[in-house]
Simulated scan of single mutants.
Amino acid sequence: MIFSAVPVRAARRTALIILALSLAACGGGQGDKQGLFSMAPRNEQRAGAGEQRESTIWDLFSNRDTGNQQVGVNRYLWNASLDILDFLPIQTVDPFTGVIVTGYGTPPGGGRAYRATVRISDPSLDARSLKLSLQGPGGAAVAPDTVRTVEDAILTRARQMRVRDGQL
């Protein structure tokens, strides 16, 4: 059999064109030497005063953790939420985002099952920091008064915990 060299040459030519275009895309353009693969120090990057610095591939390997990161969750609201909703089985707890998701459970003395999702969005002990969502079986809506009552119970318990800690 005789193989034709034309398809092989066309494939090589296409591969070289793709390689050249991809390498050209990595460059910074306009004659500067800062592109995607630039290893210039951060202060020599394009960022001027108030201008965002473009990221490079080397940013994947840099350690940007400053050690000043704080969890934005109020501990009193967090503990009060767990305390008030202790009759519900916990499915997911994430203290870094402030989310508690529970399964269905029946409150003491109640006949209807609920499930709750709590989101604590701020480190302050404030009603605006607490977001509560209650669902009935099958995703049924829960009366706003019931949600408000549970929110008030969580806020009251959080304030009690804070006062108790202040007396130490």
Rank of each mutant, 00 (worst) to 15 (best):
P108K: 09
D152K: 14
Y76P: 01
Q69S: 08
P89G: 06
G111T: 14
L85S: 04
Y114I: 09
A127E: 15
P95V: 07
T146S: 09
Y104V: 03
R157Y: 09
N79V: 00
D65W: 06
Q91Y: 04
L132R: 05
G136T: 07
N74E: 01
T106F: 05
A113F: 00
P107S: 02
R75Y: 00
L77T: 04
G111D: 14
A141E: 13
E151S: 14
T149Y: 13
G67I: 02
A141R: 10
G109L: 12
T102H: 04
P144E: 08
N68Q: 09
R119W: 14
T92P: 00
P95M: 05
D145C: 01
R128G: 13
T97M: 08
L77H: 03
G136K: 06
T146V: 15
S124P: 00
A116E: 08
Y104E: 10
G67M: 01
G139Y: 05
T102I: 02
Q135G: 02
W78G: 01
Y114H: 13
L155F: 11
G138T: 03
R75D: 10
T92K: 12
P144D: 11
N79K: 07
S133Y: 02
W78V: 03
D83F: 06
R115Y: 03
G111N: 11
F96Y: 10
T66N: 06
V93K: 14
Q70S: 11
S124G: 10
L88A: 02
R115V: 01
V147E: 12
L82V: 00
G110E: 15
D126L: 09
K131A: 14
T149W: 09
Q69T: 09
A158Q: 04
T149N: 15
S133Q: 12
R64F: 15
L88V: 03
V142I: 10
V101K: 12
Q135Y: 03
